[in-house]
C-alpha cells in the first residue's frame, strides 16, 4: 500500500513538473531534483544526472509543440544555443572551483528580483 501511494505521488509530481516545464518553457529541472532526492531517495549526484535524462525528452516534446505553434526564430535560437553550449561547458568545468553556495544564493536573489520585476512592473 505504501509502495503504491509512493508511486502515485511520483506520477502526480512528475506530471506537475512536465506541466510547469511545458507551460513556462523551463524550470522543471529545479523541481525534479528535490523530487528525486526527497521522495525517490536518489543520491544527490545521481539525482542531478537523472533529472537531465527526464527533462531532455520533456524539453524535446515541448520544443516540437512550440515550433508547431509557430514560436521559432532562427537568429535567436542559433545565437543563444551557441552561447549556451560555451557557457554550459564553462559552468561545468568551473563547478569545482567556484564557491557554489554563494553562487546559488546570488542566483536565487536574481531570480526573486526578476520575478518581482515581471510581476509588479
Amino acid at each position: 500500500m505504501k509502495k503504491l501511494l509512493k508511486k502515485v505521488v511520483v506520477v502526480v509530481c512528475s506530471a506537475a513538473v512536465g506541466f510547469v516545464n511545458g507551460f513556462f518553457g523551463g524550470g522543471g529541472g529545479m523541481l525534479l531534483v528535490p523530487l528525486l532526492e526527497k521522495v525517490m531517495k536518489c543520491p544527490v549526484k545521481k539525482s542531478h544526472a537523472t533529472a537531465i535524462a527526464i527533462i531532455l525528452p520533456i524539453s524535446i516534446a515541448s520544443a516540437i509543440t512550440y515550433i508547431i505553434n509557430g514560436y521559432f526564430d532562427w537568429t535567436s535560437v542559433l545565437s543563444v544555443s551557441g552561447g549556451c553550449i560555451a557557457g554550459g561547458a564553462a559552468g561545468a568545468l568551473l563547478l569545482k572551483k567556484l564557491p557554489t553556495g554563494i553562487v546559488a544564493v546570488a542566483f536565487a536573489l536574481i531570480m526573486i528580483g526578476v520575478g518581482v520585476k515581471l510581476t509588479f512592473f
Binding site: 524550470g27 542531478h48 557557457g87 554550459g88 559552468g91 568551473l94 531570480m111
Partner: peptide, 19 residues
Amino acid sequence: GIAGGFIGGMGMGGGTLLI
C-alpha cells in the same frame, strides 16, 4: 546564452535565467 548556459552547467536551472 553564455549566462544561461553557465548557470545551467552548474546544475542550477539556467532556463529560469535565460527566459
